[in-house]
Computed example of a mutant assay.
Amino acid sequence: MTTALITGATAGIGAAFARRLATDGHNLVLVARNTERLQEQATELHDRHGIEAEVLTADLGTEDGIALVEKRLADSRNAIDLLVNNAGFGSKGQFLDVPMAEELTMLKVHCEAVLRLTSAAVPGMQARGRGGVVNVASVAAFLPRGTYGASKAWVVQFTQGAARDLAGSGVRLMALCPGFVRTEFHERAGMGTDNIPGWMWLDADKLVAAALTDLSRGKSLSIPDPRYKALMGVAKLAPRGLLGGITSKTGRKYGPQ
């Protein structure tokens, strides 16, 4: 039986990955900051699906938290077959409104943690000739959206570059770029959602199902919804200045996820 490690596992897209992978019979390592929520989730998934669910409390905004998960990923005796780097957050406010400490924490979670955890997981997968990494980015990666969008753009570029380097190794890397998903993401960031049209909202479970299909097909980039694929196609053709004006109306880091 294979094992998947999911960061940011207790809510939203991370929880949807946990539900789907448990349903498919994968053992899980669930990573988040809240031990109580992790334990409740692990018990529920074990009782419902008969899988083993390990709990790992870690804050990926800290050195100790990243190092703890790195150590688990490098444990060859309890191999990880699929890594889902999902942990992330958004911030409300325009440039200079957000404290620098918060900006740096965002880069640590979205970029440094993704780099280090992917680097910790892949050597073992490569040695076994199989494995996968899903790095959750956002369609904000393709729009001018300050630190949030820039960090997600880094995730996309890093993942696609690494996927190219690992071609033929049996290890698949994919950047997942969701749009607006009904999760706790915006509430935690203090962002209102009343001005977002209903048709733009995605279901987390359907999104995960599409993402896993794309991973199985060997895609290095997944935008798992026709609506957002069309929007991103238009965005590629639109002037950057126009996009900047549109996205600034909802706040610099009003990030789809």
Rank of each mutant, 00 (worst) to 15 (best):
S119K: 13
A189V: 09
A15V: 07
A18L: 03
G93I: 09
F180I: 10
K206G: 15
R188G: 14
K206M: 13
H46E: 15
H26R: 05
V155I: 07
G93E: 11
W201I: 03
E184Y: 03
L104K: 13
L166C: 02
S220Y: 05
V69N: 03
S91A: 15
T193A: 06
L82E: 10
Q39F: 08
A141Y: 07
L231S: 13
R20Q: 12
V55K: 00
L83H: 06
G25R: 01
L221P: 05
F185R: 05
D64I: 11
I51N: 02
A153F: 00
G244P: 10
V98K: 08
G198I: 07
L45G: 06
T213S: 10
A189G: 13
D225G: 14
N27Q: 03
A235L: 11
A11G: 01
E44W: 08
R48H: 00
E52F: 08
I223A: 09
T247E: 15
V31M: 12
G190E: 04
A53D: 00
G244K: 01
R240T: 13
A113K: 03
G241R: 13
L231K: 03
I13N: 06
L83F: 08
A230K: 13
A153V: 02
V139N: 05
P226N: 09
F17P: 08
G8K: 01
A16E: 09
Q160A: 06
P256A: 10
D81A: 12
I223W: 02
Q126N: 10
E184K: 13
L30I: 06
A137L: 00
M232H: 12
F158D: 05
R217P: 05
V156L: 09
S138T: 02
D64T: 14
G132V: 01
Q257D: 15
A101Y: 06
G25P: 09
V171K: 08
P144S: 03
F158T: 08
T183E: 11
V109G: 07
E40W: 01
